[in-house]
């Protein structure tokens, strides 16, 4: 997925020392997606209905099936439009948030125990503490993950 990463030092709402947000890029607005879907729907179902009027009704179920797939695709885009990941470091806590389809999952680590795990090629980035590992950086590419890892390491060390 496409990403917009923002590294913010201090100005986040709950005033964390360090905060990082990664989110998807949507070049279509929510109403834009609706408009595109409605346009395709009207034309496709219109064509199928016209043929049905002339007796070739078996086109309708196929058009319906196709519209279902199209609807699911657009719903997926819409539900995931606002997804993001955030890491916030504040005091002795490292807070990791995954926002997906309107739900936030939060995980907390102790800043002094948390370790940054990153594979050499940057394909995997995770935080580890007490034997538990949490992957991060779904919307980033390899280079971004490597640089984020570097920054996180600095931040965690800085506290120590």
């Amino acid at each position: 997925m496409q990403t917009v990463t923002a590294m913010e030092g201090t100005e986040v709402a709950h005033a964390a020392e360090f905060s990082l947000v990664a989110r998807r890029n949507n070049s279509l607005t929510s109403s834009g997606r609706l408009l595109v879907f409605v346009f395709i729907f009207v034309v496709s179902v219109g064509i199928a209905a016209a043929f049905a009027a002339f007796g070739a009704w078996l086109i309708l179920p196929f058009a319906g099936l196709e519209m279902l797939v199209l609807y699911l695709a657009f719903r997926y885009l819409d539900r995931h439009a606002a997804d993001y990941e955030r890491i916030a470091i504040d005091g002795d806590k490292v807070k990791v948030e995954f926002f997906e389809v309107g739900c936030v999952q939060s995980h907390e680590f102790n800043r002094y125990w948390a370790q940054v795990v990153v594979s050499r090629d940057g394909s995997r980035l995770a935080l580890r503490s007490h034997g538990r590992e949490l992957e991060f950086g779904r919307y980033m590419n390899d280079e971004q993950r490597l640089s984020v890892a570097l920054e996180l390491k600095r931040q965690l060390r800085g506290a120590a």
Partner: peptide, 20 residues
């Protein structure tokens, strides 16, 4: 791609009607 979305159900319907 838009053309394909509009016409593919028509093809599917046409060949299905041959089949039935």
């Amino acid at each position: 791609a838009y053309l394909l979305i509009a016409i593919m159900p028509v093809l599917a319907g046409a060949v299905t009607m041959i089949l039935t």
